[in-house]
Design a protein around this nucleic acid. Structure first.
Lengths: 178, 178
DNA sequence: GTCTATAATCGGATAGAC
DNA sequence: GTCTATCCGATTATAGAC
């Protein structure tokens, strides 16, 4: 667990988001991380290995997601997260999104895995499947906005409230005992 | 309006979606279009010009969008379109999305322009601004799914119906005269 | 573990023939 | 309007010193 690997992956994320995938070259990432080309290649033997390192970081982060038992809290947190805050997970996710289409790695698979991992426990708390899908799609929409803008999207409490309101309609199993 | 320009832009879209931005090189696009490198460079003097040609095509297509006066029909069509069918506009949009982060052109600006152009008339038909924002975000979410998958996302009628149902709540101004 | 060469390849762009 | 030939710069990856 050398910190150099971390610093290099941090640099890769930064370059992907700020400069774009075309400039996510070994040389540029190495310079951003403060190491030489050869130094980077000691830790990641190839560009493919470097990119896989980022996807592995995404997978690891997604596996550590913990969700409570309250549907309202979970949905609120899910959508807040989807506006792409400055936390490590959001940055990794945004960087991975910028890697979509890269021939070296299977980004769609990693992204689908992470996305499901993160949404599945939230969706399980929502009784109505249509509402669940709606919440997921709104989260995806927020991510698209962040991806295109290269930074956090607007946090819109009214939209969150509306979706939270939908939860009240069919609270199958989450109601207080009468 | 030589057809060569069209064929080259078609090839660029195909390469971006099927092979990714990294392989959207002048040489590869030229080969896909069935012309030589020099042949392509006659029509588009540089890679930047080539990319701008795609964004111009997107802008042109967005400007020709016509929306009726019925909110339900407009929202339904907007969301159906967002599942990225096989029509020319969807393909251009998807290709442009794959260009996000390219240093040669300002994709976010072109995308924001096209997106607004397409959504603005739909949003104008929706009385409640929160519902309007919800529809737009769901559309964006569908586009993100298509972008990552590289193909059309699932058309989910239940989600569309739910959003159409929201329109009934506050039909301020669209009601029949009493 | 990290660095400085260096080799080999590829991409963008120009010049000029047809 | 389209092609081939060519130059130049950038990028990946290797070899080997420190």
């Amino acid at each position: 667990m050398s910190t150099a690997r971390h610093r290099i992956l941090d640099a890769l994320e930064q370059v992907l988001i700020a400069d774009g995938p075309a400039l996510a070259t070994i040389e540029h990432v190495a310079a951003t991380a403060g190491v030489s080309k050869g130094g980077l290649l000691y830790h990641f033997g190839s560009k493919e290995a470097l990119y896989e390192g980022l996807l592995a970081r995404l997978t690891d982060a997604a596996e550590q997601v913990r969700v409570g038992t309250d549907a309202r809290a979970a949905v609120g947190e899910y959508l807040r997260q989807s506006t792409v805050a400055d936390d490590a997970y959001s940055i990794t996710m945004l960087a991975a999104l910028r890697l979509v289409g890269a021939p070296e790695v299977d980004v769609p698979a990693a992204l689908a895995n992470a996305s499901d991992q993160w949404f599945a426990p939230v969706g399980a708390l929502i009784a109505d499947p249509v509402t669940a899908r709606l919440v997921q799609l709104v989260g995806d929409g927020l991510y698209l906005n962040a991806l295109v803008a290269g930074s956090a999207s607007e946090h819109d409490p009214a939209v969150v409230d509306r979706l939270l309101g939908s939860l009240e309609q069919e609270p199958a199993g989450d109601r207080r005992e009468p």
